[in-house]
Design a binder for these strands. Structure first.
Lengths: 230, 230
DNA sequence: AATATGCGATGATATATATCATGAATAATT
DNA sequence: AATTATTCATGATATATATCATCGCATATT
């Protein structure tokens, strides 16, 4: 039994923010130099510090990009929901991974050889520009996170996380939370105890309703206000 | 009296991390579409929120890139020392500036029309790759700042700032500080009172020596240790 | 079913750091 | 040189939030 390829490169590239710019022969090249992998929840897809040899094209699932902190308390920079693309910032610098990416829900993805990717980018300006756009979006997201850490406290950060999960990750309200309380604390940079307490307060005040793993945001406008001013 | 051009584009491009990749005709194009400006200390070069219409090629001086926080307490993401290049992350997204850049020391720089810049980048892959490298370096710097905010407190952050100023900004030890204590606090994300207190403690413990505006790092190894573990 | 293991909740306490308040020193303006 | 305005230093206080400790519940394991 070999490593099978179940995905069709052409179909996937149609929806990809980067590879949608490829010509047929370029898609063929990618197809020859890709590895299709499935990761179970909790498994590490890319470990910070290891060599950065591939870029990732996400096909299915939910993954998190996190920063390793001392004491095992990580910080989640962002989540990844397909269709999407990821390439580490070490690419042109030290060719190392600077983040740890791990699967939250079952993930299906392709690892694409870095050299192949760079070769194609050298020839395909459109793709290069799409790549830059993604890079810049990542920067804006980082800056946003930074602002949160700098000005918001407790309440504001939890409110922000709630809205983010509903709007950018689960695309629904109510939503069923697939991440743990610990991960919620790693999203916000707070301790898990603090997150617990604040979620409790939010339910007491009728802002949200939690039944098991299901979160229902009852007063989004108020949450937004707290997110902005808290 | 018009707006004179005193700098020679060719000389400048020799040292620039991005424009060193240009061919003569491309340099000529840049030369036609650039504005040469001088900024006095304190003056704003680019204001967060305004349209992002130009990229910057720094020729002389010292500038800071900062994030605006509510209450007038900004946060300094990085300093710029020539020869260097800056382009905002809003470039491909919303075409707005997301940071405020202001002069710390007298700055001489060129503003280069964004469309011209993009046109050239579309044709010149080498320059595009240099641009990506700079982008990624910016991300790594942001991530580093983020880690500091997340894990380091007081002492570690001030120690880090001291080492950074000596090694990356003034390239000397001792060095004469051209930034204010308030800016020191904006570099570290602390209150200026806290910065004062810690610098006092550092001098008491013989780690640094401050005479007027001159800072002398006496025990760099210890400062490094504090920066890592504090 | 019984036991173990881990995740989440909640109360009590400790502590880092901001804020406030005041005074000294330095720089700017007249 | 005199006066005003800024910047900086330092002590007292307040407070947000982490840490610690305990307990309950749910899920996994034997």
């Amino acid at each position: 039994m070999g490593f099978e390829k179940n995905l069709i490169c052409f179909d996937c590239s149609m929806t990809s923010p980067v590879f949608c710019n490829l010509k047929p022969n370029e898609i063929a090249r990618i197809d020859k130099n890709r590895i299709e992998v499935t990761f179970n929840p909790g498994e590490i897809i890319m470990k910070s510090g290891t060599p950065n040899t591939h870029v990732i094209s996400f096909f299915e699932g939910l993954a998190k990009i996190s920063l390793e902190r001392r004491g095992g308390r990580n910080f989640i920079l962002d989540f990844i929901r397909p269709p999407s693309f990821f390439s580490g910032p070490g690419l042109f610098i030290d060719k190392k991974n600077h983040f740890t990416i791990s699967a939250v829900e079952l993930c299906k993805l392709c690892l694409i050889d870095m050299d192949t990717f760079l070769d194609i980018m050298r020839e395909n300006t459109k793709m290069a520009f799409a790549f830059m756009e993604i890079s810049n979006n990542f920067i804006l997201n980082l800056v946003n996170k930074m602002e949160s850490l700098l000005v918001k406290h407790n309440y504001g950060r939890v409110a922000e996380a709630m809205l983010y999960l509903s709007r950018k990750i689960y695309y629904s309200n109510p939503f069923k939370l697939s991440i743990s309380k610990k991960e919620l604390s790693e999203m916000t940079g707070l301790s898990k105890e603090s997150v617990s307490r604040i979620l409790h307060e939010f339910t007491d005040e009728g802002l949200i309703q939690i039944t098991g793993k299901t979160f229902h945001l009852l007063k989004e406008d108020l949450l937004e206000q707290i997110s902005r001013n808290g």
